[in-house]
Amino acid sequence: MAIAREHELHKRRSGRNIGLAVVLVGFIALVFGLTIAKVQSGATLQAYDHSYRPALDPDHPRFQQR
């Protein structure tokens, strides 16, 4: 048994759903791209990572200018 889609209303709903899907996929791609861009531009950033690293402390004699 097949359900025949007759009404123009179904077309509108389907258009809306497809439109929204395209927008959402585009948004995901954009946020992904932004994440990559932000991480790349912050590539030289370093953190202490659980333990103190004198090389990252500007007040420490072993501080290394990057």
Binding site: I3, A4, E6, E8, R12, G15, R16
Partner: peptide
């Protein structure tokens, strides 16, 4: 076997399209 048809023969329902 026959098709099940949704009958919307009434006036066009105002429902927003994506546009």
């Amino acid at each position: 076997m026959s098709d099940i048809r949704a009958d919307f023969s009434g006036p066009s329902v105002a429902e927003a399209g994506f546009g």
